[in-house]
Design a protein around this nucleic acid. Structure first.
Lengths: 153, 153
DNA sequence: GGTGAAACCAATGTGCT
DNA sequence: AGCACATTGGTTTCACC
């Protein structure tokens, strides 16, 4: 599929809001029958538009109420050091997002923990043990204003 | 999560990795039958551990390859101004995450766009139109190192 | 590309242990 | 709490348009 038509876009918009909707229900929302919707969804999966289906959990309910944003800059910036940071940060399961950035800050991290004690422990025994960290600044989330996985199109 | 036993935790771990797994398949992974697994999943939904089920899309495939992190600080910090920022930022569909922070930076934003032109436009015609913004700093993602919705427990 | 029917199989509900 | 079985209803395929 080289290009998505309006039906495909609508299917993607629905599925990224609620993937538990049945093919039948999506079909009736689009004034189609189940078969073409079923085939389109399969195609969107196969061609990589849909990465995966997941359950989103309530972080407060599962005892990870504290979110921190952490900005990291390395001391040295040759390729080896960046790759080394990459491979070490991937092992830290508290990190939900980590982006390599352009500019003064090298990495943004989003970290979920049960409380400040666990965060302290995370920084002390895990994050700060990674080689070559120059600057490390932590910020705590007071309130989630927007937190979605949807893309607008 | 005092009320959750090891089965519940395993179910949550599976569903946040892949919610398209059938009840039967989850059951056989836990050495159980479908009925108790089905009832546990219902309970986890009803009691708010599971917020929703969604499809995660491939941002490059759907033409939103550029991610920016934006740090915003307000000029004035009385309650009215914070609420006003809150209600105005929610209307901007490019923003996938927005957190109200403790400390020097007031808000972190994650923004997805099709390219730098669209980002320029977003900042010029939408973000900078919000009242009371003091500092606005943008950073661009070079590479996603970790980008998951899973919580580790 | 879409429709509708048929076969198949998972989700769901009940009753037993 | 879990298991087994029955029913409902969604998924998937396919012949036809």
């Amino acid at each position: 599929m080289e290009r998505l038509d309006e039906y495909d876009l609508k299917i993607l918009r629905i599925l990224q809001k609620d993937s538990s909707m049945s093919t039948k229900k999506i079909a009736s929302a689009l004034n189609l029958t189940a078969s073409p919707v079923y085939e389109r969804i399969r195609k969107l999966e196969k061609e990589g538009y849909i990465k995966k289906y997941v359950a989103l959990l309530n972080k407060k309910r599962i005892n990870k109420p504290v979110t921190a944003i952490c900005m990291v800059s390395l001391r040295y910036h040759n390729e080896g050091f960046i790759d080394k940071f990459d491979s070490q940060i991937r092992k830290l399961s508290e990190v939900q997002e980590c982006y390599h950035m352009a500019g003064k800050v090298d990495f943004f991290l989003k970290i979920n923990v049960s409380g400040l004690d666990e965060y302290h422990d995370f920084v002390r025994t895990k994050l700060s043990k990674i080689d070559n960290i120059g600057v490390l600044e932590s910020y705590f989330v007071l309130k989630d204003i927007i937190d979605t996985t949807e893309f607008y199109f």
